[in-house]
């Protein structure tokens, strides 16, 4: 008998059905906090992301992104150089108007100090970004550089995780084209493994900078 058969047989022999008087499965509670939209949802997202030590910069036009990236890198005393996701929302931005920003498009390597990628969605409930792996959004952009910059529009904000999953199911033909990695990211990397002292920037980014494009503004 294979281990698969052995394990399944043991489970089937021992498992016990729920008592017949057990209450039927009820829908789990969805935190009221996340059930908001519009400006309230945007404000909640910003508040929660900042509470998780991310920084959020509001922009009103995609054209402003390269300028904001340049300003961020300068403020962090970093060279004006970064790796970009090839997603059209980023690759099609007017980078040529900012020739001082040296950029490369593709996956990140350990040499990259900063990366800009685009989020599939943001979850206001906890200030979390949902980042999907894919040809145009490599996963390494989220983890290797010390400075992770992420572009997201207010259209892509969800209130709750339930909304996120609905959108993701819809976007993947009900899961048929499910991405290899779904990264839910809440703030920059951290560790408290040394005497419970919280330090930002463990193995992942030390900074998470969110560029929030307010399309409703």
């Amino acid at each position: 008998m294979s281990d698969r058969d052995t394990v399944l047989a043991a489970i089937r022999a021992n498992k016990k059905a729920l008592p017949s008087d057990a209450p039927a499965a009820r829908p789990a509670p969805v935190p009221a906090r996340g059930r908001v939209d519009g400006a309230a949802r945007r404000d909640l997202f910003v508040r929660m992301a900042e509470a998780a030590s991310a920084s959020v910069e509001m922009l009103t036009s995609p054209e402003d992104v390269p300028e904001a990236v340049a300003a961020y890198l300068a403020a962090q005393n970093l060279p004006a150089r970064l790796v970009l996701a090839s997603d059209p929302a980023i690759a099609n931005l007017p980078w040529h108007d900012h020739p001082m920003i040296a950029h490369r498009i593709g996956a990140a390597t350990v040499q990259d100090h900063a990366a800009l990628t685009v989020a599939f969605a943001g979850i206001a409930e906890t200030g979390t970004l949902a980042l999907l792996s894919g040809a145009e959004t490599p996963t390494t952009l989220n983890f290797l550089p010390e400075h992770a910059l992420v572009l997201i529009t207010t259209d892509d904000l969800c209130g709750t995780y339930e909304e996120l999953w609905s959108r993701l199911r819809a976007a993947t033909d009900d899961g048929a084209y499910w991405p290899r990695a779904v990264n839910l990211v809440t703030g920059p990397s951290r560790s408290a493994d040394i005497e419970q002292k919280l330090l930002l920037g463990a193995h992942g980014p030390i900074k998470l900078h969110i560029l929030l494009l307010d399309v409703e503004a």
């Binding site: 894919g134 990695a181 779904v182 992942g204």
Partner: peptide, 19 residues
């Protein structure tokens, strides 16, 4: 509220993936 990274891994890299 949430840990920093919650990751769902599903299968190996797709043909078009870079990593």
């Amino acid at each position: 509220e949430m840990s920093v990274y919650t990751t769902l891994s599903t299968g190996p890299r797709r043909e078009e993936d870079h990593d």
